[in-house]
Every structure is written in C-alpha cells, then in structure tokens.
C-alpha cells in the first residue's frame, strides 16, 4: 500500500504547552484511519497542522510525496486535501447548490474569472450535479443553508468538501452535535465514501470508530500512545488505561 499523507516529527507549542509532541503518522491509500484520544489529547490541533490552519513549531507534513508544511490552506486543497470542521463551517448566505458550485468552480480554477456565468459552463454543471446526486441533496439544494437542520448542514459540508475531488479527506468529529434521528443518514454517507479516497476520522464515539476504521491511532497528551488495527487497539491495556483514567478523573 502506498502512503498518501505523512506527518514527520510534528511539534506544535503554544507558549509553554506542547499540544503536538513529535507525532509521526502515516495514512495509507484508501485507509479509514481513526484518530482517537481523550479530550485535550491534541486531535484537532493535529488536524489543523495537517491542513495548514496552524503552522507547526517543528516537523513536516508530506502529501503525495510533496512537502506541504509551508503551503497555504487553499494550496493544500488544490493538492487534494479537504476537511470538515468540528463545528460546521458553511456559507450562511448560500444554498447548498451555490456552495457546491463554488467549490467545483474553484477546483476547475475558474475563481479568477470575473465574467463567466456559472450556468454556462458544462464542467461546473456536471461537477455540481454529480455531487448533489451522490449525496442526495437534490430536495434541499435551493434552500438557504442557514435554514437547514444541523444534520443536513453536516451533510452539505461533507458534500462540499467532496466537490474539491480530494484524495485525502479529514473528518473532524462528523457526528458531533448531530441529533440521533439524523445520525444514521450521516453515517451512511461516511460509509459510502469512495474507496480510493483516504479518510482520517477524528471521533469520540467508539461505536463509529470500530464500525469504520481500518486503522487506529491513539493520541494522549499530544503524543502517539498506540497505533494499530482495531482489534489490536481494543486489546491494548495502555489505551484502556488512558480512557478509564480519564473517566475516573471525571467521576
């Protein structure tokens, strides 16, 4: 299996606090790689380092063989890395259709064309219709995003990241905040993601992790505590301790 994404000795310090502590991480092509760990383990910081929201103190990020540590967020998207956020980040004034058309036109490099019409370009239309169909958004595509229920907004966010045609997708707690009733539909969408896209899944919910993951990395206090296939991780006493320890301290 080839490696699509790699973090090499990644370090992030905020003042005296080391949020990411020499993390080495490899994502194999087509993997469903879960990143788990107790609250404050540095999972979101790690994803922010991968996607360029934060700059690392030391170490590097390699995407498809290219060192992207110093590239901007948008340049990483252009190279095939897309993400969702822990809390929905959407375009409130747009409809799902417009948001997906936007990402599609940016993927095609049309964003600098001030006099094109979106509805005139067959590539924009095809790309947009394809995403709408695949994520079954046709019944809500003209509703303002701000008016949609949270679970639907979540779907729109995942669908719009897909419009960028990523080969690496980072999902930051995709089920967080989604009511039980809408959860199933969302998880079906995650399950149906095409196999050639490599996925990093940050998740608290162990049911979801063990349903999807082909590989698991456990982060504790910014360090990699363990990494392996789901069965190995489930048996690992250190992982149990990290989680039980956290629960004990909460009690």
């Amino acid at each position: 299996m080839s490696i699509v994404l790699e973090a090499r000795d990644l370090v992030k310090q905020f003042g005296g606090i080391t949020a990411t502590d020499h993390v080495n991480f490899t994502l194999e092509k087509g993997a469903r790689h879960a990143l788990i760990g107790p609250n404050g383990a540095g999972k979101t910081t790690f994803v922010n380092l991968l996607t360029g929201v934060l700059q690392p103190t030391a170490g590097s990020v390699v995407l498809n063989g290219e060192d992207i540590s110093h590239l901007s967020r948008e340049a990483r998207v252009k190279r095939g890395m897309a993400r969702t956020f822990q809390i929905n980040q959407l375009f409130a004034s747009m409809t799902p259709l417009e948001m997906i058309a936007l990402v599609t036109s940016e993927r095609l490099g049309y964003g600098t064309r001030p006099f094109n019409a979106l509805d005139h370009d067959p590539l924009v239309l095809d790309g947009t219709a394809d995403i709408i169909a695949r994520f079954r958004l046709d019944d809500i595509m003209d509703a303002p995003i701000a008016s949609l229920p949270y679970g639907k907004q979540r779907q729109v966010e995942i669908a719009s990241t897909f419009a960028a045609h990523p080969n690496v997708l980072l999902l930051d707690e995709p089920a967080a905040g989604v009511p039980e009733a809408e959860r199933r539909e969302l998880l079906d969408i995650v399950a149906a993601l095409p196999p050639d896209v490599s996925v990093v899944l940050i998740e608290h919910d162990m049911d979801i992790v063990f349903r999807f993951a082909t590989r698991i990395t456990v982060l504790v206090n910014g360090r990699v505590l363990a990494e392996g296939d789901p069965a190995t991780i489930a048996r690992d006493p250190r992982v149990k301790e990290a989680y039980l320890g956290e629960e004990a301290s909460h009690a």
């Binding site: 996607t51 929201v53 901007s72 967020r73 948008e74 340049a75 998207v77 252009k78 897309a82 993400r83 956020f85 980040q89 959407l90 375009f91 409130a92 004034s93 747009m94 936007l102 990402v103 940016e106 993927r107 964003g111 719009s160 990241t161 960028a164």
Partner: peptide
C-alpha cells in the same frame, strides 16, 4: 465574506 475559514478550506485564496 460568509466564512473565511471555510473559503480557504474550499480552495479560495
């Protein structure tokens, strides 16, 4: 204008 974080995560510079 709506969301600069999502804009850059959508490939917009």
């Amino acid at each position: 204008r709506d969301n600069v974080l999502r804009a850059s995560a959508s490939g917009v510079p």
